[in-house]
């Protein structure tokens, strides 16, 4: 396996373009545009890595399906992802998304909320159309999988929001992983992989292996994403240190609280107790410096690398019986890519 994959960017580009082209057909091109459908189309047309739809298509193709057989599910995944991003950005008070102001900052929370709701509904359409191509059995199964994913994602989001609402800081790494499993992994990796495997195998496989592989891949992805928030340049697309401003319970913040001496711990708790708009740049700078002081960034980096090792192990189990293919290699190299990306 190459250290720096050229296959991953190639397939992300290929399947991403395919998804993006198909996705446009589902974005309503009618009135009311100004206050609804232009907003609905905003995030999907801003671009993005297209990791989720590409995982779905590649998993299906690794099992022998054609890309177009998984395209509807891939489109649905990307639309639902963008719908949740709109709501996440409101809930987190985020300011930037894919290099531009978040939707609610541009249009206000009420219109952004409505656009997010609409986009989620638009994302159901490809699933409803599945029965024509995939048959009623598989279409219903995929719809149920999507419903399960959406519920688990909401549970994960509730976990994290609840921690912030109650200002819980004394969390463990296991708490963090549980939250990430639900909030991130199911939508980002587990559901795309399971859906792709279902489409490719026509349901005839055990899906637990894909939950495991998806979990380790998704958790690695999320930790790397959290790290990039602290160190990335403008190409990252989100505001630097935004997670600190938002008080997100990342692996670094959890370790900081765990490792801090009591005086620092008290100060950290006091800062996090403030709502975002009452935190100062000095507060955020102090937290960031403490993270370096307490080795939190390198700790999280090491943690992500080890999860990546586990992801490779689970990959080898999940795809052991499949013949070698470009898509199979892509799925393997995704593990390296998520920890190398910047």
């Amino acid at each position: 396996m190459s250290v720096t994959s050229s296959l991953v960017p190639a397939i992300l580009g290929e399947y991403g373009a395919m998804t993006r082209a198909a996705l446009r057909d589902y974005l309503p091109a009618r009135e009311p545009r100004r206050h609804l459908y232009d907003l609905v189309a905003d995030y999907p047309l801003r671009g993005g890595k297209m990791m989720r739809p590409s995982l779905c298509i590649a998993a299906a193709c690794a099992f022998g399906a054609r890309p177009d057989e998984a395209l509807g599910t891939a489109v649905s995944i990307e639309l639902l992802h963008n719908a949740l991003l709109i709501h996440d950005d409101i809930e987190d008070g985020s300011e930037q998304r894919r290099g531009r102001p978040t939707l609610h900052l541009e249009h206000g929370i009420p219109l952004a909320l409505n656009a997010g709701d609409t986009l989620a509904l638009v994302g159901l359409r490809p699933l409803l159309e599945h029965h024509e191509r995939l048959g009623a059995d598989l279409a219903l199964r995929l719809a149920c999988e999507a419903e399960r994913m959406a519920l688990i994602s909401a549970e994960g989001q509730a976990l994290e929001l609840g921690w912030r609402h109650d200002n819980l800081i004394d969390l463990t790494d296991a708490d963090y992983l549980c939250m990430v499993l639900k909030k991130t992994c199911w939508l980002a990796t587990i559901f795309p992989l399971r859906a792709g495997a279902l489409i490719g195998s026509r349901v005839a496989i055990d899906l637990d292996a894909f939950v495991r592989f998806g979990f380790f891949l998704g958790a690695t992805f999320q930790i790397q994403d959290d790290l990039l928030n602290l160190v990335a340049d403008r190409s990252y697309g989100k505001e630097r240190d935004g997670d600190l401003w938002e008080g997100k319970r990342t692996l670094m913040l959890i370790r900081l609280f765990r490792e801090s001496v009591p005086a620092d711990r008290d100060r950290l708790a006091a800062i996090l107790r403030f709502p975002r708009h009452e935190r100062t740049g000095a507060d955020v700078g102090w937290i960031r410096a403490q993270m370096d002081r307490y080795d939190c960034v390198e700790y999280a980096r090491r943690f992500a690398h080890r999860l990546a090792g586990a992801a490779l192990h689970e990959y080898s189990l999940a795809f052991a019986n499949l013949p070698d293919s470009r898509d199979k290699r892509f799925l393997e190299e995704m593990v390296t890519w998520v920890v190398e990306r910047n």
């Binding site: 463990t172 790494d173 296991a174 992983l177 549980c178 499993l181 637990d208 939950v211 495991r212 979990f215 380790f216 958790a219 700790y299 090491r302 943690f303 080890r306 999860l307 090792g309 586990a310």
Partner: peptide, 24 residues
């Protein structure tokens, strides 16, 4: 030690996913 750190981290992750699958 870092080896322990790695072991504990991975064990924790496996406990989380195993519990999740059981609940599922």
């Amino acid at each position: 030690a870092f080896d322990d750190e790695a072991r504990i981290g991975i064990e924790t992750a496996y406990q989380v996913i195993d519990q999740h699958l059981r609940e599922g």
